[in-house]
Every structure is written in C-alpha cells, then in structure tokens.
C-alpha cells in the first residue's frame, strides 16, 4: 500500500517537474529581453530540476543512488545562481541594457 502511494507521489513529482521545465522553456522563448529570460531559466533550474530529481529519489528509495541524486540537486542549486550572476554581470559589461517597464521606481 505504502509502495503504491510512494509510486504515485513520485509520478506526480516527475510530471510536475517536467511541466515546470516546459514552462521555463516557453518563458525562454516568450519573454522579451535577456534579463527577463533569466527568470524563466530560474524556473527550470530550481523547481523543474528539483521535482524531477525528487521523483527519482522516491523511486530509488534509501540507497547510494538517492545520495547521488541529492548531490546532483544540491550542486545544481549552488551553481545555478553563480552562473546566472556571472552571466548578468558579463551582459552588463557587454553593454546589454535591461528593457524596463516605462514607469520605473
């Protein structure tokens, strides 16, 4: 019974994770400028990747596999802001100006 429940839970995680990944991809295409696209990439990097990896962890149960999945997840969460920040700073130095809404604060 509990096995079936965990199975269902992991399916839900995998499917929602995939959904958030696609949402991030759509955002990458739809959003108008580079700096808004960072946010779309953030959606796939955090919740998309996180939910898919959690779904896989639930499938794997308690084993070395789970630890490797946790490591992948943790590494992703640590590096993705660093990469995004480096990209934003490089883009600013490369004279890419963010397109802002008209009445900025």
């Amino acid at each position: 019974m509990t096995m079936a429940a965990i199975d269902v839970l992991s399916w839900i995680c995998l499917v929602t994770g995939g959904f958030f990944g696609i949402v991030g991809g759509i955002g990458l295409l739809r959003l108008p400028d580079l700096f808004s696209r960072f946010h779309a990439a953030g959606v796939t990097d955090t919740l998309g990747a996180g939910l898919i990896l959690i779904g896989l962890m639930l499938q794997a149960g308690w084993s070395l596999i789970t630890i490797k999945l946790v490591l992948i997840l943790g590494f992703g969460l640590f590096t993705s802001p660093t990469a995004t920040h480096a990209l934003a700073k490089a883009a600013l130095h490369g004279k890419v100006k963010p397109r802002l809404s008209r009445k900025g604060t």
């Binding site: 992991s10 399916w11 995998l14 499917v15 994770g17 995939g18 959904f19 990944g21 696609i22 991030g24 991809g25 759509i26 990458l28 295409l29 796939t44 998309g48 898919i52 779904g55």
Partner: peptide, 15 residues
C-alpha cells in the same frame, strides 16, 4: 511514467 518525464525534458531542450 519515466517516458513522460523524458518527453518533457526533450521538449524543454528543443525550446
């Protein structure tokens, strides 16, 4: 169900 996740990932990669 892994197939669904794989498909979603492939769609995202295409985008």
């Amino acid at each position: 169900m892994f197939v669904a996740a794989t498909t979603a990932i492939l769609i995202t990669m295409a985008l």
